[in-house]
């Protein structure tokens, strides 16, 4: 079965990003496919490569990047949600004359239409939120 995931809360503050990750791992282990994970609202904070958790804690951002690389999953962020919260790709940094981008590997800015598209394409769209 093809799943698409929607994550609407930031990492650490709320468990939803952890639940989504554990669900994704279990689904992939059971032989299901995840094509796309969409990050909306505060969910875009899952993509900041500037996140530095303590050494004995899980690294939520890197965990997403590794999962995406391993299973060729698209990690897409709503660009409007991301830009207003200070999550920038190279283009966003350049256009707005900001000195750095901060998107972690595997993540890409996209439009909300691509969330709708993911919902249409997948057998199940699952959301994880506050």
């Amino acid at each position: 079965m093809k799943f698409a995931l929607l994550i609407n809360t930031g990492p650490y503050q709320h468990q939803a990003a952890d639940t989504a990750y554990q669900f994704a791992r279990a689904a992939l282990a059971e032989g299901h496919t995840i094509r796309r994970i969409f990050f909306y609202q505060d969910g875009v904070y899952n993509a900041s490569r500037l996140s530095v958790p303590p050494q004995d804690d899980r690294h939520i951002v890197r965990r997403w990047s590794a999962l995406a690389a391993e299973h060729r999953i698209e990690l897409l962020l709503c660009s409007a949600s991301a830009l207003r919260r200070g999550i920038l790709d190279k283009e966003g940094a350049r256009v707005n004359a900001i000195d750095t981008d901060n998107l972690a590997p595997g993540f890409r800015l996209a439009g909300l239409a691509q969330l709708i598209d993911a919902g249409i394409e997948a057998d199940r769209l699952l959301s994880f939120a506050d």
């Binding site: 079965m1 554990q22 279990a26 689904a27 299901h32 199940r124 769209l125 699952l126 994880f128």
Partner: peptide
């Protein structure tokens, strides 16, 4: 149920509402 059980519930149902 555990996470694999969660996955099974999702596949067994047509729609999931969070």
């Amino acid at each position: 149920i555990d996470y694999p059980g969660f996955v099974r519930l999702v596949t067994e149902n047509d729609v999931v509402q969070s």
